[in-house]
Design a protein around this nucleic acid. Structure first.
Lengths: 264, 264
DNA sequence: AAGTGGTCTAGACCACGGG
DNA sequence: CCGTGGTCTAGACCACTTC
């Protein structure tokens, strides 16, 4: 029995080896961002394999977000982008200087002004996850205010805000119009002043709608922020923010930060 | 020229149709979490296609995190897991009751006690990203303290803490031992009291090391938290937390939250 | 041994992008 | 037009799991 180091069985698959070679060339800088990889027929020749095997290797790299393919053009090393930064919160007493919007304040953009491209108000039954956060029963009516935003011309944010119907009924929240000064101010005027909120942050692969809107390539996750706002007694709003994972970072500052290190 | 609705060209690919059919059965509940999908030969028969086409469809669903395949057993609908929640910060004045650890306090686990499975201290040159955050030059020496943690028996967290060498040199930070009361306390004793910190949160696909440690299946991203700690004057520490995206949520509380809605 | 997914081949035709 | 990636087929053999 030949000597083998531990279990060198893990992966001698040919498509893995091809992927490893290409990945090495990318991380070492031999293949630079934006550069085209050898064409599939070339790789078939270089690695003496079938085209399907080559495509398996490329699929691996694609799903790891290292390359993108464009039909008719080729396969290219993914170019790193400077991400935007959305502020979850900042130390109190510091004016933000940002306009009132349903979105989190953002920094790092070229022109810095999010642009709403679609806005929609619906009344539906609460899903299980929405009902749980708003302390409703599943199926209870809720108002959804949907917003799609672009930044620097690229789609970057989907917002779904959910309001319990007993709060929203007969108020501007039901109307498909922008709400002056934001919904938090409006809820305060209705007697439901926001006392605090909880953000719950997660990451997952995009669904079909998100994939289309963000024009994502395979291998890019989305970041989801569920912000539940509370009055002194009860949940008053759930806002679900969905960002594309490759262009967005969330920032969160606590305590005193030397000025030159602050975001925004 | 036959009439076609807009661009019905988008995708009539057979493997897309197969994936759509299976996805419908999953989301509608006809195929329940944990249940086995029809075998690949069965799908070949049902959809009158080749096996490669069937596997393309299954690869799609896998990369969307909807199914997992296990060799020799079959393809199964991914079972949802109740995620752990890590607290980024909480409103001041509330004792956390958690033990001192480099990790963020966690809730939602069965036995609630993170367990460190590997610990390592290294001295290396700063990468570009680390240098930027610690205000060093690329290549400057830094101390890395690496920690791998399990929770409820499953790998859940990788921590890399970076310290500028001029702070860490000759201190216990250089030693491969647990630091009593945590490194923040130690840095304070050294004259670098933490005044505040900035968290930068992102999501991306795992690299090979992360993929192995977390035993991830394709279609699961990781969540990355970069926490840069500052004294009154300068950055004193960078901690990089990497969580598996399918089992972790980050929580962040601001203001006053009614007690029964609080995390942890 | 039988059934499952994992890897691989060799070939075909289509769709897109650019000369 | 040509070269690129996208889709699809038919068949082969291997590796893992269970019985």
């Amino acid at each position: 029995m030949p000597l083998k180091e531990s279990s060198r069985h893990v992966t001698d698959a040919k498509y893995q080896q091809i992927a490893d070679r290409l990945r090495d060339q990318i991380t070492s800088g031999a293949l630079k961002p934006g550069q085209r990889l050898p064409s599939e027929p070339d790789l078939v020749r270089d690695f003496r394999s079938s085209r399907n095997t080559v495509r398996l290797a490329l699929a691996l790299l694609t799903n790891q977000g290292l390359v993108v393919t464009r039909q008719g053009l080729g396969t290219f090393v993914q170019e790193p982008v400077r991400p935007f930064t959305a502020l979850l919160s900042r130390a109190p007493g510091v004016p933000t200087g940002h306009h009132a919007t349903a979105a989190l304040p953002v920094s790092g953009s070229a022109d810095g002004e999010p642009e709403t491209v679609r806005f929609l108000v619906e009344q539906v039954s609460a899903s299980a996850s929405v009902a749980a956060k708003l302390e409703l029963q599943r199926g209870d009516p809720v108002v959804i205010r949907r917003t799609l935003q672009r930044l620097d011309g690229a789609p970057w944010l989907m917002i779904n805000s959910y309001f319990p119907m007993d709060l929203a009924s007969g108020t501007p929240l039901e109307q498909a119009a922008c709400i002056e000064d934001g919904s938090i101010k409006l809820l305060a005027d209705l007697g439901y002043a926001q006392a605090g909120f909880v953000d719950e942050i997660g990451a997952r692969m995009p669904d079909a709608r998100e994939y289309d809107f963000f024009r994502l390539s395979s291998g890019t996750p989305v970041i989801v922020v569920n912000r539940t706002s509370y009055s002194q007694e009860r949940p008053i709003r759930l806002s679900r923010y969905v960002y594309r994972g490759d262009r967005v970072r969330l920032a969160h500052e606590v305590g005193v930060i030397p000025a030159r290190y602050r975001s925004g």
